[in-house]
C-alpha cells in the first residue's frame, strides 16, 4: 500500500511538469503581452519597458520558465498584477466562501441523490420510476441560468423568502441567510444527472447473481438493498464523487457570480477579466494538484470498499 502511494506520488511529478509546460506555452503563445493591458490607455515605450522589467518579461523564456518552476515548488506565485496583493492571500480569503457554499451542497446533493436513486431503482419500471426519470430529463434540459434567474426573481424578489444576493463575514449568517437559495438552485441543477447515474448503478447491481443468492438465503428486500446492493453500487458513486471534488476549490462559477459570493469562482472570472496571470496560474496549478491527489484518494477509497481492487 505504502509502496503504491509513493509510486503514485512519484508519477505526479512528470504530470505536473507537463501541466506547467502546457500552461507556460499557452500563456506565451496565446496570452498576448500583458504589459499592454497593465499600462492602460496611456502607454509609452518607456512605461512598457518598465512594466516588462517589473513582471520579469524581459528575461529569456527558459529563465521565465525557471522562475515559474520555482514558484510552483514554493507554492508562492508572487503578487497579483491588478491589486498587488500576494496571490496566496487572495486565494486564502476566497476559499472560505466557496467551501461554505460548495461543501453543504455536495453533502446534501450526495445524500439526496443516493437515497432517491436507491428508491427508484428498487421500484424500477413502476410509475414512480418513470415519473422521476421524466422529471430528471426535463430538469437536465433546462439551462442552469434559467434556474438562477427564475429563482432570484420569484423566490427572492417576488416572494421575499430569501435575500436576492449578498454575503457577510459571519459564517452563521451566511449559512442560514445567504447560502440557502444558491444551495437550492445548485441542487436542482446537480440532482437530476446524479439521480439518473446512481439509479443505473443500483439497477445494474440488482441484476447480479449475488442478489439472487441473498434472496435464496431468505433475506428481506430491505436488507438486500441496503446491505448487499448498496456497498457494490457505491463503487461507481465514489468515483464520480472523487472526480467532482477538485471543483470544490473552483467554486460554483455562476452561483457565486449571481449571488455576489466572494469565492474562488468569482475570483477566477475577475482574474480572467483582468488578465491577472499570477492568479490564473496559481489556480490552474492548485486545481491540477487537487485533481491528482483526489484521484489517488479515489483509488485508495476504492480499495477500502471493494476488496477485489488490486493497487498496482
Amino acid at each position: 500500500m505504502l509502496a503504491y502511494i509513493l509510486r503514485r506520488l512519484w508519477q505526479m511529478v512528470p504530470t505536473l511538469f507537463g501541466v506547467m509546460l502546457l500552461l507556460f506555452i499557452l500563456f506565451n503563445w496565446v496570452g498576448g503581452d500583458p504589459s499592454y493591458i497593465l499600462a492602460g490607455k496611456s502607454f509609452s515605450a518607456e512605461t512598457l519597458a518598465n512594466i516588462r522589467h517589473q513582471l520579469g518579461l524581459d528575461k529569456s523564456l527558459p529563465e521565465q520558465f525557471l522562475i515559474f518552476v520555482q514558484q510552483v515548488l514554493t507554492l508562492d506565485f508572487g503578487t497579483s498584477w491588478s491589486t498587488q496583493q500576494p496571490v496566496a492571500d487572495i486565494l486564502g480569503s476566497r476559499i472560505g466562501p466557496s467551501l461554505t457554499l460548495a461543501l453543504p451542497m455536495l453533502l446534501v446533493s450526495l445524500l439526496l441523490s443516493v437515497i432517491i436513486a436507491a428508491i427508484v431503482a428498487y421500484v424500477r419500471g413502476s410509475l414512480t420510476d418513470r415519473i422521476v426519470t421524466l422529471i430528471c430529463t426535463l430538469a437536465m434540459s433546462v439551462s442552469a441560468l434559467v434556474y438562477i434567474i427564475a429563482g432570484q426573481y420569484w423566490l427572492a424578489h417576488k416572494l421575499g423568502w430569501f435575500p436576492i444576493l449578498g454575503w457577510s463575514d459571519s459564517l452563521a449568517t451566511n449559512l442560514w441567510l445567504y447560502v440557502p437559495l444558491p444551495l437550492l438552485l445548485g441542487l436542482v441543477v446537480s440532482l437530476a444527472p446524479d439521480i439518473r447515474f446512481y439509479r443505473s448503478c443500483f439497477v445494474e447491481e440488482m441484476n447480479h447473481d449475488y442478489v439472487r443468492t441473498a434472496r435464496a438465503k431468505g433475506l428481506s428486500e430491505q436488507v438486500i438493498m441496503l446491505k448487499h446492493v448498496m456497498r457494490n453500487a457505491l463503487i461507481p458513486v465514489v468515483t464520480s464523487l472523487m472526480m467532482s471534488l477538485p471543483y470544490l476549490f473552483l467554486g460554483a462559477l455562476l452561483l457565486e457570480r449571481f449571488f455576489g459570493i466572494p469565492g474562488m469562482g468569482n475570483e477566477v472570472l475577475n482574474a480572467v477579466d483582468r488578465s491577472d496571470f499570477p492568479v490564473i496560474k496559481a489556480i490552474t496549478i492548485y486545481v491540477a494538484l487537487a485533481t491528482m491527489l483526489f484521484n489517488l484518494l479515489a483509488d485508495i477509497v476504492y480499495k477500502l470498499i471493494d476488496p477485489r481492487v488490486q493497487l498496482k
Binding site: H208, D209, Y210, R212, T213, A214, R215, A216, K217, G218, L219, S220, H228, R231, N232, I305, D306, P307, R308
Partner: peptide, 23 residues
Amino acid sequence: RALRGRDIAMIFQDPMSSLNPVF
C-alpha cells in the same frame, strides 16, 4: 423468507458471481 435458506437452500452455477464480492 423464513423458508428460504432454512428449509430449502440453493446453490448456483457460477459461484464467483453468486457470492457478494465485497463481503
